[in-house]
């Protein structure tokens, strides 16, 4: 199932949290060879995890982490503006309608549908929160995974194997990602409501 959790809520889910930060170490340090910090618990974290980001997490039936991503609003401090501003064409992207998405991570044993389930969760979040776009920082090698899912970002820039890109929250993406993930939008809508309640259907 999908959970939307702020960093301050993670303590309630110790197993999920532990496996998420360990899986991040496996993916970003071990597999993609990013220059990231891993602490004595084996957790990969950075300063943005300390800013109470919102995590979108796929929780497996045994309560462990299947995949996740991390959101921060671009109106506040965020990684795209602070660290990767040179990859966004000189534009500091800042808007209440655009959130940053970073640390897209899959557990080593994630099922093929997990990536699609995460993207479905992101579509629910973006559309439900009235966002126009998300700006992401991701490994350039991930681009083909996003393409295969049918929701490729518009890449803004790439350097040293790291890309920034834009995802547009078009309403049809819910259905599209739900089909890919083989999850009903009734269910994904329910997961969203469990976290945020029945927000009004917002219109732009």
């Amino acid at each position: 199932m999908i959970r939307y959790l702020y960093a301050t809520e993670l303590a309630t889910f110790p197993t999920l949290t532990d496996t998420m930060f360990r899986d991040r170490a496996t993916q970003f340090r071990d597999r993609l060879k990013w220059d990231v910090s891993v602490d004595e618990k084996g957790w990969e974290t950075d300063q943005y995890d300390a800013m109470n980001p919102l995590y979108l997490i796929w929780e497996k039936s045994d309560g462990t982490h299947g995949g996740s991503m991390r959101f921060l609003p671009t109106t506040g401090d965020n990684m795209t503006a602070d660290v990767f501003n040179h990859l966004t064409d000189g534009v500091t992207i800042r808007s209440p309608l655009i959130w940053e998405c970073t640390r897209f991570c899959l557990a080593p044993d994630a099922t093929p549908n997990t990536a699609a389930a995460l993207m479905l969760g992101a579509a629910e979040l973006g559309i439900g929160m009235n966002l126009s776009h998300s700006v992401g920082v991701f490994d350039a090698r991930m681009t083909r995974i996003y393409k295969r899912l049918g929701w490729a970002p518009d890449v803004l820039g790439t350097q040293d194997g790291i890309s920034t890109g834009l995802w547009a929250f078009q309403p049809d993406m819910r259905e599209k990602m739900a089909a890919k993930a083989e999850i009903s939008t009734l269910l994904s809508g329910q997961w969203f409501q469990n976290a945020f309640g029945p927000l009004p259907m917002m219109t732009g």
């Binding site: 808007s95 126009s132 776009h133 834009l166 547009a168």
Partner: peptide, 17 residues
Amino acid sequence: KISEHTLRVYIESARFK
């Protein structure tokens, strides 16, 4: 020479400023 979404985001960014 940018995608339409990129243009939209630049406009959105400018609009907010």
